[in-house]
Design a binder for these strands. Structure first.
Lengths: 151, 151
DNA sequence: CTCTGTTATGTTACATCACAACATAATCAA
DNA sequence: TTGATTATGTTGTGATGTAACATAACAGAG
């Protein structure tokens, strides 16, 4: 059983537990993200699925499927790049911290990482001092990955 | 001389120093942002200018003008919201720190603020440990402002 | 002042993005 | 089997962002 297969079936089980279904189409979209080493836009996923599976995904469907996968915490939406990535921890069973993301502005590769609690805490404190309130701890940072920085 | 006037003429001087020109149209776009208490999209600015000045700005022009104003550091583009704000420090003469932004996801009001050097430093360190390199210290955070949080 | 290169703006056309609204199909539960 | 719920198909549209080319305004050299 390939790694991809394992992740997919794990995701399927998670959905069952949540009373939702990981349908064929949803699996295909998720696979697309899992097999990509970078963040993909909705329309890139449309193309990917149509080419790879010889299907006919409409953009609308992909948007809906992405929304679903997000709810199930199987993918993350990167607001800074308007792109999507598979969650890096699908096969983990524990509850995760809210992730932060490093996005390479050149090649769109993404690293899901965690800022230390204390740093996050001081960010939150400073935000509150400014009379705002953090909506989400999902912080996204524009970066260059190592190889793009070298070039 | 109104506050707006002062800011505009100061901006104009800055442009002259940089060997660029703050034309009439560019002034109008900048005024739009200066007078707004929230971040505006390019098309909102198109409408604003056309209504306020009875002109006929094309979207294309506004995009170009915004690009110019950004280069001159008179406005900032908020990638997270696809919107623009006037720089909060146009009239300051000293070099600024790179700003961070708190964006109210409800009303689009924006606060330009600065994370402490030490917090910023620890973010940068953690990013480097992850083998990425921060492209910009302009960090944008999705927030709720005080009044929207209350509602 | 005129010529010329540069910069700014006008205009048209188009590609992309995101989703609303409604129709049909598949699935589940009783 | 039937009715309710969920998933997908289909059509259309508003918003976004920009390329490509045309014209106009301006600044400096002669």
């Amino acid at each position: 059983m390939s790694k991809l297969q394992r992740i997919l079936s794990h995701a399927e089980q998670q959905c069952q537990i949540n009373g939702s279904r990981l349908t064929d189409k949803r699996k295909k979209v998720l696979s697309g993200l899992l097999q990509s080493d970078r963040a993909l836009s909705a329309y890139e996923l449309v193309d990917y699925c149509n080419e790879t599976y010889d299907e006919n995904f409409a953009a609308m469907s992909v948007y809906r499927i992405l929304e679903f996968l997000e709810q199930e915490q199987l993918v993350h939406k990167l607001n800074l790049a308007n792109r999507y990535v598979a969650c890096g921890h699908i096969t983990c069973d524990h509850q995760h911290e809210v992730p932060q993301f490093l996005i390479c502005t050149d090649c769109q590769s993404v690293k899901e990482f965690s800022i230390s609690r204390s740093t996050l805490g001081s960010i939150k404190r400073q935000v509150e001092q400014a009379n705002f309130h953090l909506v989400s701890e999902q912080i996204e940072l524009n970066c260059l990955c190592k190889s793009c920085a070298a070039a």
